[in-house]
Design a protein around this nucleic acid. Sequence first.
DNA 1: TTTACTGCAAACCGTTTGCAGTTCC
DNA 2: GGAACTGCAAACGGTTTGCAGTAAA
Lengths: 137, 137
Amino acid sequence: MSDLLERLRARGWRITAQRRVVAEVLDGEHVHLTADDVLERAAARLPEISRATVYNTLGELVSLGEVVEFATDDRAKRYDPNALPHHHLVCSVCGTIRDVHPSGDPLADLPTTERYGFTVHEAEVTYRGLCPSCAPT
Amino acid sequence: MSDLLERLRARGWRITAQRRVVAEVLDGEHVHLTADDVLERAAARLPEISRATVYNTLGELVSLGEVVEFATDDRAKRYDPNALPHHHLVCSVCGTIRDVHPSGDPLADLPTTERYGFTVHEAEVTYRGLCPSCAPT
DNA sequence: TTTACTGCAAACCGTTTGCAGTTCC
DNA sequence: GGAACTGCAAACGGTTTGCAGTAAA
């Protein structure tokens, strides 16, 4: 994510304090923030940042492919910095999300007869279970 | 889905015209309706049905396990009658959704080292691609 | 007869939008 | 200087809720 600002610049985008802060907030692994989380953390560093700008910037990062939107059962979408392709492991009780990297390619498991004429590009897996803190003792 | 009403009754739920109609609307394969779709189709048979009742009934069917909520990138959740476990194939352009049944168990592809101490119960796969109508010619 | 269920309407909350003002290049 | 970006505030749309009335058992 560190050279994200370079890629933005290469696309002709202006580097502003707001965009820099949003990019910084999203840096790291196992980061799955809501737009509101991002606003809160960004505002801690740049108090005058607005909700609209956070949404604008998130949308831009998504269309750049730097960030992936992740729809959960909650109402709010999660924003996931997409350094390397990965899948998600979600706790059914507390909602904790971890990034996981399964062995093998899920795409290979979808036979032609089950593709309905689609050209299939990717598979996105959500594993569900109980995290250690929520597991019955 | 046909004996759903029996299962509801067994749980002590009252069988009303509204619940019957919602259950009927959700019957079938490749059915992934929004709450609004359900309301529209239910109202075609039972004009006085209300939005609140549709949401109530959908929520009940979900907690019964008869219907599965499916969060898409769109704002509206989809409701999927859950007769047999299955996964989804989604067109990235038009949003068409098909039920698919991959060979093999995606759960087997998640090594212990990638489970972060979770007890993993299920895997939910979303395949993305282009449907025949949206594929470039 | 009892109490679960329904319908109405308003509230809720995440997200989007229009626009005037600002700032980066 | 000019286009791109920001902040504000209002609108939007799917979902939830409170409550008075209705109907299943």
